[in-house]
Simulated scan of single mutants.
Amino acid sequence: MARRKDADHGQMLYYADGYVTASFMYHLKGDEEAANAFFGENAEIIHNEKWQETANNQ
Rank of each mutant, 00 (worst) to 15 (best):
1 M>N: 01
2 A>K: 02
2 A>P: 00
5 K>I: 14
8 D>W: 10
9 H>W: 07
10 G>D: 07
10 G>M: 10
11 Q>F: 03
11 Q>W: 04
13 L>V: 13
13 L>P: 08
13 L>Y: 03
15 Y>M: 00
17 D>M: 01
18 G>S: 10
19 Y>D: 03
19 Y>I: 00
20 V>K: 06
22 A>M: 12
22 A>N: 07
22 A>C: 10
24 F>T: 14
25 M>A: 12
25 M>L: 08
25 M>F: 03
25 M>Y: 01
26 Y>A: 08
27 H>S: 12
27 H>F: 07
27 H>Q: 13
28 L>I: 00
29 K>S: 09
30 G>P: 03
30 G>S: 08
31 D>K: 15
32 E>T: 14
33 E>D: 06
34 A>S: 13
35 A>R: 15
39 F>A: 05
39 F>Q: 07
39 F>N: 04
40 G>R: 12
43 A>H: 09
43 A>P: 03
44 E>D: 00
44 E>G: 01
47 H>R: 08
47 H>E: 00
47 H>K: 02
47 H>I: 00
49 E>I: 14
49 E>F: 14
49 E>T: 15
49 E>L: 12
50 K>D: 08
50 K>I: 06
50 K>M: 12
51 W>M: 07
52 Q>P: 10
52 Q>G: 06
53 E>M: 11
53 E>C: 00
53 E>R: 15
53 E>V: 06
53 E>T: 11
53 E>Y: 14
54 T>S: 03
54 T>Y: 05
55 A>P: 00
55 A>I: 08
56 N>E: 05
57 N>A: 09
58 Q>H: 08
58 Q>F: 13
58 Q>V: 10
